[in-house]
Amino acid sequence: MKKIGRNFFSLVWTGVRRNYDNLDDNIAKHLGETDADNPVEIHLSRMFSEVFKRHSKDEADRLFIVGTRSTTPSLRKVSSRPVKPWFFSRVFTVLAVSFIMLILLLFLFKSNKAIPGLIFIGSLAVPFSLLMMFFEINVYQNISVLQLLTTFLVGGILSLLVTMTFYMMLPIRSEVSIESALIVGITEELAKCVVIIFFINLYKLNYIFNGVLLGLRLALAFRSLKVPVM
Rank of each mutant, 00 (worst) to 15 (best):
V212R: 03
R223Y: 02
P85W: 03
K110Q: 10
V162G: 15
R6M: 05
A181Q: 05
P39H: 11
I27A: 12
F152V: 02
G5I: 07
M101I: 05
S174W: 04
A28P: 04
G155K: 10
N7W: 00
I197A: 15
C193L: 14
V229E: 14
T72Y: 12
V94E: 04
Y167Q: 15
A60Y: 04
L225E: 11
W13N: 13
I100S: 14
S144D: 10
S123C: 10
N19R: 10
V126D: 08
A96K: 04
E136R: 14
V145A: 15
N206C: 07
F120D: 01
I178V: 07
Y20W: 06
G215W: 02
N38G: 01
G156W: 03
H55R: 15
E179F: 04
Q147S: 13
I42H: 10
V154F: 06
V139T: 14
V176H: 11
M47E: 08
I42W: 02
V12F: 07
K57E: 05
P39Q: 06
I183V: 12
G5K: 11
R90K: 11
N22C: 11
R18M: 08
L131I: 03
L95N: 13
P116G: 11
R223V: 11
M1Q: 09
E136A: 08
A181H: 00
L44T: 01
Q141Y: 01
N138T: 00
G117S: 11
L95S: 12
R217Y: 07
P73V: 00
L95C: 14
H55C: 11
F88E: 09
S70G: 08
V227N: 07
S123K: 00
F209C: 11
L75K: 06
T151V: 02
I200V: 13
I197E: 09
S144T: 08
E179W: 03
V12I: 14
S98R: 01
K3F: 02
P116D: 06
T165D: 06
F128M: 08
F199C: 08
S80K: 11
N201K: 09
F107Q: 07
G215R: 04
H55Q: 01
